[in-house]
Amino acid sequence: MKNILPILTVLLVIVAVWYAAAIKMNAPWTYAQAERAGTEVTFSEVVRDTLAQERPVLPAPHQVAQELWDTTVMKKVTSKRSLVFHGWVTLSATMLGFAIGTTAGILLAIGITHNRAMELGVMPWAIASQTIPILAIAPMIIVVLNSMGISGLIPKSIIAAYLSFFPVAVGMVKGLRAPDAMQLDLMRTYSASDAQTFWKLRLPSSMPYLFASLKVGVAASLVGTIVAELPSGATRGLGARLLSGSYYGQTIQIWSALFAAALLAASLVIIVGVIEKITLRRMGMAV
């Protein structure tokens, strides 16, 4: 409970700054309106107006909260205007992509730790793949796959996988190499096979590293999915919500989609963290 106070304080400061910024950034429009109508506005009228515009430059916190409430709790989840619906579209592609990326990352790491040729042959490509900006490559993947008749979930998942496999692979290589010389020598004194050393030593040693990179990977997957929802005129998903919001100047919609994405990311990272805690505790590695 002791750490609630600082968190609340920071939150309060952020909200206060946000309100101040909203007033300042939305005020020009209020003044312009008043000028056109030929009326004078008092300061309290400006404040009231800037916090209640329909298309503000920066929506006020309560407007975003209201929009979030309206588009989640108050809408049927099957409705196209429900954020739960769009969130689910994004989440399902994220999870599929994350699963593919994690599997690929782990397999790559196993290959690299057991085969020097693979380390030299594959690792540079894996690193190179990460230097290509996702924003550049995502539309190409979508377009190419679309022309092959593949659309919807799969292309988005591939981009999500593309972003998550690398942190998982890097973390897992580090984890599989974590056992020290003495632990490996112990295995040698038993004449243990490579497979036995892998299952009984390398894999358990890698668990803390794996979970650390899963947290990075799951967030990266979500970003990948949202980016993949931006081009190609997608109509479903949080990314599509962001884009259509910006087409029509619906700043409140953009911000609420942004918050939904952030909440989703935070929840995913927290869930991975909980699984991590449970797993490591059962392994006796966390108190």
Binding site: M182, L186, Y190, K200, G284
Partner: peptide, 23 residues
């Protein structure tokens, strides 16, 4: 070895079983 080098994810019992499992 100089350090006990028990695997932290195994109980004492399971640590002792390690060579037996391998063999």
């Amino acid at each position: 070895f100089q350090a006990a080098g028990l695997y932290p994810w195994r109980t004492i019992e399971k640590n002792i079983k390690l060579p037996l499992e391998i063999m």
